[in-house]
């Protein structure tokens, strides 16, 4: 089907009712969205993470930094149980979302993932149209009763991901026809469309050029008023630019977790200091 959006609708683009989120000012500074306590991950014999504990504040950007292979991506994938699909991967310890145990076998993983969305390292739009890429989540979760509702959700999500102006005339073109940076924003729009509370980003800019990276970083900054964002990055400058809190991972351990300012100006651990000053990593 063709999606010709009436001009009038484009003007009225607004948040879907269900996506209405409270004003960020109302949230107390200390509110914790997710909490990890003693998280340990093993792949068969290999220990990937040992005893990670941290509190992730709501509606802030938290950066996880560290050298490659230090376990930061593994930790990120624990938060929405994406490690479930990897054979031989075992997670112990406690992870909570709003105080609810994420590891609970009775917890519905599909529901968890709709609340904790994920953006991947390499943009992975589905081989469908731009419209259908964003509509995918709302369709499987049944988030609309009428076609107009779906269109509103898609357009709002694209707008929030800062992509609407670039693609509004070509919603029927395949998602893969976009540039790398646009594809990554499409993936963000796709994630937003199911109205998550937390968005996990696994090195979202590592495959992008500097200009596209800057756009994503701006986007992250805008999104933090509505979503709790956790971003894994190997670029310290990026962490410094976008995050309010940072955690430094080293060899499967969380060395230090503090406000980004503290991590970069006054780290308490020498390993952190060596890393942020560029001695290794």
């Amino acid at each position: 089907m063709r999606h010709t959006i009436p001009k009038i609708m484009l003007d009225r683009v607004s948040l879907p009712e269900s996506a209405a989120v409270a004003d960020s000012d109302a949230v107390p500074e200390s509110e914790t969205k997710m909490q990890a306590a003693g998280v340990r991950v093993t792949y068969g014999e290999k220990v990937a993470l040992s005893g990670i504990s941290m509190e992730i504040p709501a509606r802030k950007v938290t950066a996880l930094i560290g050298a490659s292979g230090c376990g930061k991506s593994t930790f990120l994938r624990c938060l929405n149980r994406m490690n479930d699909i990897i054979e031989g991967c075992r997670v112990t310890g406690q992870i909570t979302l709003d105080g609810q145990d994420v590891q609970d076998p009775d917890l519905d993983v599909a529901m968890l993932r709709s609340r904790v969305g994920m953006v991947f390292q390499k943009p992975n739009p589905f081989p469908k149209s731009i419209f259908e890429n964003v509509a995918y989540g709302p369709r499987i979760h049944g988030l609309f009763d009428h076609k107009e509702d779906l269109e509103r959700i898609v357009l709002t999500s694209l707008e929030r991901a800062g992509l609407l102006n670039e693609v509004k005339d070509r919603l029927d073109e395949p998602g893969t026809s976009l540039s790398g940076g646009q594809q990554q924003r499409l993936c963000i729009a796709r994630t937003i469309a199911v109205n998550p509370e937390v968005i996990l980003m696994d090195e979202p800019c590592s495959a992008l050029d500097p200009i596209a990276t800057a756009r994503i970083e701006d986007l992250i900054d805008e999104l933090k008023s509505n979503y709790t964002i956790i971003i894994v990055t190997h670029s310290m400058q990026q962490a410094a630019r976008v995050s309010q809190f940072s955690g430094f991972f080293h060899l499967g351990e969380l060395v230090e977790f503090d406000s980004t300012e503290a991590i970069f100006t006054n780290p308490s651990d020498t390993r952190t200091k060596n890393y942020v000053t560029g001695r290794f990593g």
Binding site: S18, A20, V21, A22, D98, M111, S114, R115, H141, L143, N195, E197
Partner: peptide, 14 residues
């Protein structure tokens, strides 16, 4: 607004 009002927590979703 508390998170209980999102679609995820509606009874029809379950």
């Amino acid at each position: 607004m508390s998170p209980t009002q999102t679609w995820q927590s509606r009874p029809e979703t379950a």
